[in-house]
Every structure is written in C-alpha cells, then in structure tokens.
C-alpha cells in the first residue's frame, strides 16, 4: 500500500507536510526513548554509584553485576514459565472468545443484541470489590490453581467493543453472499470475519498479552502460598517492594524493611528482565496493524 501511494506524483505542499512530519516524529522518538534508556542505564550501573543520582541515558560506572545477580534468583525462572504459559493460553482463549461475541453483536439482525451488549457494557463500570471477588474464587475452588490466571479475565468487554467497531466497518456484502451460499453463522465468523479482522485481533492480542504478562495482583491474592505457581511480575513486585507504603508506616517496621530493600540498580535490572520478553513479541504483532490489509478479497 505504501509503495502504491508513493508511486503517484507529489506536489510541494505534500513535500512540506512530509518534512514537518518527519521532524515531529524525530522529536517524539527522543522524548519517548528517554525514560526507557534511563532505566536501562541504571540497570548497568553499580548500585553504590547509583545512589548519587544524576544518571541519564548512559551508565556512569558500568557493570554487568546486577544482571548476574538476578540470574541467581531461581524464583524468576519458575515465574517466567508460568508467565509465558498464562500469556499464551490467556491470549489465545481471550481473542477467541472476545471475537466470537463481538461478531454476534455486530449482527444487526441478532435479536438478543441489545440485551447482551448492555449486559456486558455495565460490567465495565462496577465491581463488587475485593472481598466478594475473593470469596467467589474460593467457592469456585480456584485458589492455588493455575486457572485463576485464565478464567476470571477470559471475557474482556472492552476488547469485545473494540473488535465490534472494527467489524462494523467491514463491508457487509461478503457476509450476505456467504449466507446465500448456505453457510451458517459460525462458518461466516470463522471463514470470513476472522481473517479480515487480523489488524484488530493483533491489537487485542497485544492488549491481552501485555495485561496477562503484567498482572501480579491475582498471584498475590490467590496463589502466594504456592511458590510453584508464582509469576514473573509478582516476583518483580516483591523485589521492587519498598518502604513507601502509605499506611501503617511506623518507625519500627520501616527500619526492619529498610535493611532489606533491594538496591535501585538491581531493581532496574529486574525491570528490564521482565519487560524485554514482551517487547520482543511486539514486532510480530505490529506488522498486522501497521501494514493495513491486502484487501484483494474485500471488494464491493
């Protein structure tokens, strides 16, 4: 698509637009890169020197020691395994369920459409709170199981609406012709809608994957007594745990904790260690929502 567009002749105003746009994007790159480089730089700096502050994008006192240390944390490996598992499984199931519901909601002739979408939309804005949620998980016997990572969050209402708005924009004629061919609704969803939805499915997959990867609260609430079910992010949060708790702070316990606080540099090294895997998968998904569709099939 990009190639075809540039093949056409461009005029001066177009060229000015492009130059301004490029310049603007350069600024964006610089501004956006800074915080991440800062974390990276600190993670390669010795912890004793980091306390002095003032590190920007380059380590002042370079060392690999911080990374060597965190590789000795064997809980991180167990966490890595569970995090990968929950991310892969959770994303797969989530995309499947969300897109299926989204398709039914995009069908204007579906009688229960209004009921289902209202029923779902409401849940975005209320929650029963911590205690009932905890009791529910207890009563469903999900505590200290892996499934507590997958089941409660499997249906995401927000993602359903995102997918639906995408399907709404697809030409409807395809569906109708398929219907005339005698295909049932599931076949239309599976054969026609899903392939066309690649950009939005990639987006939703990214949202779910990052959400799964980053969540630690469920591990803490439900599985913290099962070391074999720990997740990478929970281990990170425990390491990052500081004395910055706002409540119940008193000198006595603050002193106890202060002696065990992890040095800043190691914290940043763990942060990088935990973030990099999710950054690595990004380009694979990116191509789907950056390239646009090769829309040979979608012609009215």
């Amino acid at each position: 698509m990009a190639k075809r567009r540039s093949a056409l002749p461009t005029n001066t105003s177009d060229r000015i637009f492009d130059i301004c746009n490029m310049a603007f994007m350069m600024i964006v790159v610089v501004v956006m890169l800074y915080p991440f480089l800062n974390v990276l730089a600190i993670s390669f700096n010795t912890s004793l020197d980091t306390v002095k502050g003032g590190i920007t994008i380059w380590p002042r006192d370079f060392t690999l020691e911080n990374y060597k240390k965190i590789l000795e944390y064997d809980t991180l490996l167990v966490g890595l395994k569970n995090s990968v598992l929950r991310t892969v499984l959770g994303t797969f199931l989530g995309v499947l369920c969300d897109s299926m519901i989204a398709y039914t909601l995009s069908r204007k002739d579906y009688k229960a459409r209004k009921f289902v979408s209202t029923f779902l939309a409401l849940t975005l804005f209320f929650s029963g709170g911590l205690v009932p949620g905890y009791m529910l998980v207890r009563d469903l016997q999900l505590m200290n199981t892996f499934w507590v990572y997958i089941l409660p969050g499997m249906v995401s209402v927000f993602n359903i609406f995102i997918i639906r708005s995408f399907i709404d924009n697809l030409p409807i004629s395809l569906q109708e012709s398929a219907k005339l061919d005698g295909a049932n609704d599931f076949v239309i969803y599976w054969r026609i809608i899903l392939p066309l939805c690649k950009p939005v499915l990639a987006t939703v997959a990214l949202f779910i994957a990052v959400g799964q990867w980053n969540s630690w609260f469920d591990t803490y609430l439900y599985n913290s007594m099962s070391p074999s079910l720990t997740t990478l992010q929970y281990e990170l949060v425990k390491i990052l745990q500081n004395t910055n708790s706002t409540t119940n702070a008193n000198a006595q316990s603050a002193e106890n904790i202060a002696n065990m606080v992890t040095p800043e540099s190691i914290k940043m090294a763990v942060t990088i260690f935990v973030t990099v895997p999710v950054l690595v998968i990004y380009p694979f998904l990116q191509k789907y929502f950056m390239q646009g569709m090769t829309l040979g099939a979608v012609k009215d």
């Binding site: 995408f166 929502f289 950056m290 646009g292 829309l295």
Partner: peptide, 14 residues
C-alpha cells in the same frame, strides 16, 4: 495509538 492504527489499517486503500 495502537487501537487507532489498527482501525486505520482497516480502511480500504482504494
């Protein structure tokens, strides 16, 4: 921006 990029990707290039 990711959501919007996906939506833009859905626009017919023609």
């Amino acid at each position: 921006t990711i959501i919007y990029l996906a939506a833009i990707a859905g626009i017919d290039p023609q």
